[in-house]
Design a protein around this nucleic acid. Structure first.
Length: 492
DNA sequence: CATCCACAGGAACTTGGGGGCA
DNA sequence: TGCCCCCAAGTTCCTGTGGATG
């Protein structure tokens, strides 16, 4: 195992963020075991899962209108018609995804009840962010399903065949007319042959149009209505244009057996501006807007979930209003509110407190922010880390609102000393913009008249923590030894 | 009022690494 | 093996520009 030391290093680092083992060990006196202490405290949570973002609730307060609206549109699928395409708008944490998933679950449930072939495929375009990958993923899920259909059909035919061997009359009673047992065998063989041709689309390697064809065939293999749900659709358009959407939206005119319908979910209200007008009109047949929650609505949601999540009386009175207020400031983000509540609970649990207090919420607020920053910085690519370190050094030396040129100069010396590749300034400006979008730095374009136009960059995270995280990176391990060389530059 | 700085940021291209297929 | 594809990261070349200054 050549990478053993690295793994070890990561484990130690993780430990500090996950559970504070040192604290536990210090308290470990007498013959009590390691976990006894932790267990002895009155538990605060009843069911923590319902506070996690992955949990899809059965009831979404203050979203009845939107849900009914979606249902009205999608009910067409149950009648075997093509539902209109839907575009859903709303900022993060406004319940778009949860509502859409809820509706699709109900849709699939009902479709099974009435035996109407109708499926919903969910794709998160932030993860699956190119045309190729979207098509490949869709193709593979449908291919998988089709194999299932073939298996079912083959089984059916085999039963029929077995029955027919003892009672020739059974053939006529079957749903398809076979005049002999051999005919049934032939059919089975043909089906198995078809199945063997249903290979998965590889993750990479094929031309995109071939993937498209494969996907097309897979959808059209049986009669059905396929609802394709594209979450964070703006990310897809931003990265790889509207070809995917164009292809998907014109599919219906060529499909013979099945119909497809698209549900696009977007954070960005204006993303249709970049679309081809044809795509825009077809995709936006129906539009549903999810407005941000206000503090009162957030309070309802939190109340709702905390009844299930916490033990009775575990929350002091002002906890929920405070969480709601904090989250309402962040454009009414319910996910954030739930996170806050959960983290506050975890902090209280770790303190072995009786219940969650206002104080825990405030600490949770800080912890979430710091955790986010630490995680983002830790997972940054090396080059971005170098750029960030350059900004950090400038800040350390009392230079605030630095501009691109200064950063680039420091970055260059840093790379020289570390023996790393030096990127062009063009690339570094992009990296700075990325850091800006991640909220690690704040970069504003300003014009200094005669002295040019540049970005004014300032750090928007705590210096010490960030520095610690950067120095923990093995690839930058020499950085501390290098700093003096860079420091020397400031003397000039 | 024109000039001109110091970049911003778009477009097209290259490189190298993932893979398929005959 | 050679030729095809896709993709991320990076490079080259480029045009655009807000406003202090001469």
């Amino acid at each position: 195992m050549p990478d053993e030391p690295q793994t070890d290093g990561r484990r130690t680092a993780d430990r500090d963020f996950e559970v504070d083992l040192d604290d536990v060990l210090e308290d470990d006196e007498g013959d009590e075991g390691l976990f006894d202490d932790l267990l002895s405290g009155e538990p605060i949570f009843e069911n923590k899962e319902v506070l996690r973002p992955s949990y899809t609730p059965h009831e979404l307060p203050h979203r009845k209108d939107q849900i009914n609206n979606m249902a009205t549109i999608l009910v067409a699928a149950l009648r075997g018609e093509t539902p209109s395409n839907i575009l859903i708008y709303g900022k993060t944490g406004t319940g778009k995804t949860a509502s859409a998933k809820f509706v699709s679950q109900e849709l699939e449930k009902t479709s099974q009840k009435y035996d109407v072939p109708c499926e919903v495929e969910y794709i998160n375009c932030e993860v699956t962010d190119t045309q190729y990958r979207v098509l490949a993923q869709l193709a593979n899920t449908f291919i998988e399903q089709n194999r299932g259909f073939v298996d079912d059909r083959v089984e059916e035919l085999q039963d029929l065949r077995n029955e027919a061997e003892s009672d020739p009359g059974a053939l006529a009673a079957g749903d398809a007319d076979f005049d002999s047992v051999d005919a049934v065998d032939d059919r089975i063989e043909a089906l198995l042959q078809e199945k063997s041709e249903m290979e998965d689309v590889p993750m990479t390697g094929w031309p995109t149009d071939r993937v498209y064809t494969r996907f097309f065939e897979a959808v059209d293999y049986v009669e059905r209505v396929a609802v394709i749900m594209l979450d964070e659709i703006d990310k897809l358009v931003e990265k790889s244009g509207d070809d995917t959407l164009y292809n998907l939206s014109r599919m219906n005119s060529e499909l013979e057996n099945s119909r497809v319908s698209i549900i696009g979910i977007s954070n960005d209200l204006k993303f249709t501006d970049f679309l081809d007008p044809r795509v825009k009109s077809s995709l936006g047949e129906e539009e549903i807007v999810f407005p941000p929650y206000d503090a009162n609505q957030l309070r309802d949601i939190l109340q709702h979930r905390s009844d299930v999540a916490f033990k009775a009386d575990a929350l002091s009175e002002d906890v929920i209003p405070l969480c709601a207020a904090f989250a309402a400031q962040e454009h009414g983000d319910a996910r954030r509110a739930l996170d806050l509540l959960r983290t506050a609970g975890e902090l209280a649990e770790r303190d072995q407190a009786e219940g969650v207090t206002e104080e825990h919420v405030r600490r949770a607020q800080d912890k979430i922010e710091l955790d986010r920053v630490v995680e983002v910085v830790r997972t940054l690519p090396t080059q971005s880390k170098l750029v960030l370190y350059a900004i950090l050094l400038l800040e350390d030396n009392g230079v605030h609102n630095v501009n691109t040129g200064e950063v680039y100069n420091i970055y260059k010396t840093l790379c020289d000393e570390l023996d790393a590749d030096v990127l062009t300034q063009r690339r570094v400006t992009d990296l700075i913009s990325e850091l800006d979008m991640l909220g690690i730095v704040n970069a504003v374009v300003v014009s200094k008249g005669r002295y040019g136009r540049t970005k004014e960059i300032s750090l928007s995270v705590p210096v010490d923590e960030t520095e610690a995280v950067l120095e923990a990176d093995s690839r930058l391990s020499d950085i501390e030894n290098v700093t003096p060389f860079v420091q020397a530059r400031f003397d000039n």
